[in-house]
Amino acid sequence: MEFEFFDFDVIKGEEIDLHLMNTVPGNKEKDWVPAYHFNITLSGLTEPIGKIDIRIGHNENLYYGGHIGYSVKKEYRGNRYAAKAVLLIKKVAHTHELEKLFITCNPDNIPSRKTCEFVGANLLEIVDVPEDNDMYQRGEKEKCIYEWVCT
């Protein structure tokens, strides 16, 4: 059965909106799952202040890489926009019937850890990244593994 992407052109929030930029199909050879990529904007505007993506499915890579990835431009940090984007992207998770998601970050990334805590994710453990994982090859040796129950 082929994966079905749903229409999430814009997900509106009170302070920010998520604008769908593209979708990426899964790649079985690389063990990648399908993903949605969004720009984060201030509500009603189109200039990106950051990005967020959500990967749909479950596999070992997602335990280390997470279902959700985000970044916010430096000049917009400190406003909890990443956490607000995570809360908005819950709509995509619900549509795909995902109830538990992993969000990961490097142990020294305190702002990302605070984002995970703000949305109610629980720290499961801090783990060593397997040597055969792409992240390890890029120099990322440890990950905080948060579990987010987004029901």
Rank of each mutant, 00 (worst) to 15 (best):
K28L: 11
D9P: 03
T95N: 08
K84D: 01
Y136F: 15
Y70L: 04
K143R: 15
N79R: 12
E2P: 11
K74Y: 15
N122V: 14
N133W: 12
V86F: 02
N109K: 09
Y63R: 15
C150R: 02
K74D: 14
I49R: 12
D128M: 04
F8N: 08
I49G: 00
P107H: 09
P48R: 06
F3R: 06
G120M: 13
G13K: 01
I49V: 13
T95R: 09
I16H: 04
T46A: 08
W148H: 07
E97C: 02
T95L: 02
G26C: 06
G66M: 07
V149L: 05
P34K: 01
T95D: 03
T23K: 09
E125V: 12
N106A: 05
E47Q: 09
G120D: 11
K51E: 14
I11T: 02
G44D: 08
G69K: 03
N61M: 08
M135N: 06
A35F: 00
L88S: 02
L123E: 11
F6K: 15
E29T: 14
K12G: 00
N22S: 05
A121S: 13
N122I: 09
C144K: 00
I56R: 03
K114N: 13
Y146A: 05
N122C: 03
G120K: 07
E117Q: 12
V33G: 03
H96A: 11
G78I: 09
S112V: 11
N59M: 07
I68S: 02
S71K: 05
I40Y: 12
G65N: 06
L101I: 04
Y136A: 11
C116M: 12
T23P: 12
K51Q: 11
F118L: 03
K91R: 15
V86G: 03
E60K: 13
T115Y: 14
V92T: 01
E140W: 12
A85T: 08
Y36M: 08
I52K: 00
I110L: 06
A82S: 14
T23E: 12
V149W: 07
L98P: 00
R80S: 14
E131D: 09
V149G: 04
H19F: 07
A83S: 15
V10E: 04
G78E: 04
V92F: 07
E47P: 00
Y81V: 04
I68W: 05
L87D: 13
D17M: 00
K30Y: 02
A35V: 10
K91C: 00
K143I: 03
G13W: 09
D7I: 05
I16A: 00
F38D: 08
W32L: 15
N22K: 14
E4S: 14
P111S: 13
F38Q: 07
E131A: 04
N122S: 14
N39Y: 15
T23R: 08
V127P: 01
R138L: 13
G26A: 12
D134V: 11
L88I: 11
F8Y: 09
N22P: 00
I126K: 12
W148T: 07
I68L: 07
N79A: 08
R55M: 04
E15C: 11
I52S: 01
T46R: 13
I110M: 02
A121Y: 13
P107A: 02
K143S: 05
D17C: 00
A121D: 08
I126E: 15
K12D: 11
R138Q: 08
K141S: 04
W148M: 07
P111H: 06
